[in-house]
Structures are given as C-alpha cells and as structure tokens.
C-alpha cells in the first residue's frame, strides 16, 4: 500500500463548518475545475434568473434571484482569479487527498441506494446498504456486521415508521398488511 507512505494533511479537510478546509496559498487537486464549474453554474443561473421576469419591475419574482445570481457570479469569478494565481499543491493528489477510494465506494453506495429505494423498498435497500458499508469499513466478521445492521435498522424503523408514521417506500415488502395483521393480533387478544 502506498497510502501509508503518503502523509495526508488533515488540517486541510477543515475541522468544522466555522473552519472549512482548503490549503492556504496553494491550489488543491481539482480546485481549479471546481471553481470553473461554479463560475459556469453561476452564469447559467443569472441567465435563468433574467428569464424569470427580465427587468420588468423592482418587485418582480425575478428581482432577488437575479441579484443573488449576480453576486454568485462576481464572487465565483473573484475566487477563480485567486485560484489561478496560486501554485499547485505538489504534495497532494486527487485520489489520495480529495476523493480516496473509500469515499468513491461509499458515494457509489449512496447513488445505488437512491436508485433502488423506490423499486426495492426501504427495508431491503437499507439493509443491503448497512451490510455492505459496515462490512467494507470495519472489515469485521459477518456475524458482527449482520447483528449491528439488523439491530440498528430495526431501531430506525421503529422510531420513524411506527412512532412517527413516516411512510417510507414499501417496495417489495407488504409492510402495511403485516402491520395491520400485527395490530389485529393485539386487538383480537385484548
């Protein structure tokens, strides 16, 4: 593993939201592309905001969006200007410091979760997600992984679905029928 040899400067990740990351005076891998995307994005928004109502009236629904998008474009352009002047951070690479493999894998899991949630339903999708991610991250035994996954999923289900009646997508499991059956059981017993 080359990863262990590489020294990752974690101060650049930022410690909290009040102290965001970033390398002072250096340009991190991908930073330039990110800034350019922001500039383009702001320009598109400004154009879209102009399209809402043009310069029709001070009170038009497009007034504040247009002002906001203009501020975004100006500030993003200023950031781009600063970024271009900064030297590259030679000690960092994209795959080691910005998006290490683990982040990519977990991000892909999240995308898969989003895709499967509706057709498969909340319970199976979440279980798969927990099993896969805990197994990969902890590298512990399957027994541990399954116990922790099932246990915490049940807890979340109990709080959100039963107590707070949040109706997550049911997908392939006929949850409503099962719950009604359980209710009937209690009602019959009482």
């Amino acid at each position: 593993m080359t990863e262990s040899e590489h020294h990752h400067d974690s101060s650049r990740d930022g410690s909290s939201d009040a102290t965001p990351g970033g390398a002072a005076g250096k340009r991190r891998p991908g930073e330039l592309v990110f800034t350019i995307i922001l500039v383009i994005f702001s320009a598109v928004l400004l154009w879209n905001a102009y399209g809402i109502a043009g310069f029709e009236a001070l009170s038009s629904p497009g007034a504040i969006p247009m002002g906001t998008a203009a501020v975004m474009l100006i500030s993003a352009a200023m950031v781009l200007n600063q970024t271009l002047r900064k030297p590259r951070a030679e000690d960092e690479t994209m795959l080691q410091d910005i998006v290490p493999p683990l982040v990519i894998v977990l991000a892909l899991f999240l995308v898969a979760y989003g895709v499967l949630l509706e057709p498969l339903g909340f319970l199976p999708t979440s279980l798969l997600f927990l099993l896969a991610s805990i197994k990969i991250l902890s590298k512990r035994s399957w027994g541990f992984t399954i116990t922790v996954s099932v246990g915490s999923l049940l807890g979340i289900y109990l709080v959100f679905r039963i107590v707070f009646t949040v109706l997550m997508p049911t997908g392939i499991i006929p949850e409503a029928e099962i719950l009604q059956a359980i209710r009937n059981l209690f009602a019959g017993g009482a």
Binding site: L106, S138, V148, M168
Partner: peptide
C-alpha cells in the same frame, strides 16, 4: 463508537431524515 459503524448509520439516518420532512424521495 467505531467510525466504521458510525459513518454508515449517519448516512442512513440522513436519508431517512431527509425523506421524513415531506415524505418525498
């Protein structure tokens, strides 16, 4: 708690929490 368990749980809670606000995928 070990991060290897905490991180997946935070992610799952985030998903359920976001859904619960307006029951919207």
């Amino acid at each position: 708690m070990p991060r290897s368990v905490l991180i997946p749980l935070i992610l799952l809670l985030s998903i359920v929490g976001a859904y619960a606000v307006n029951n919207s995928i």
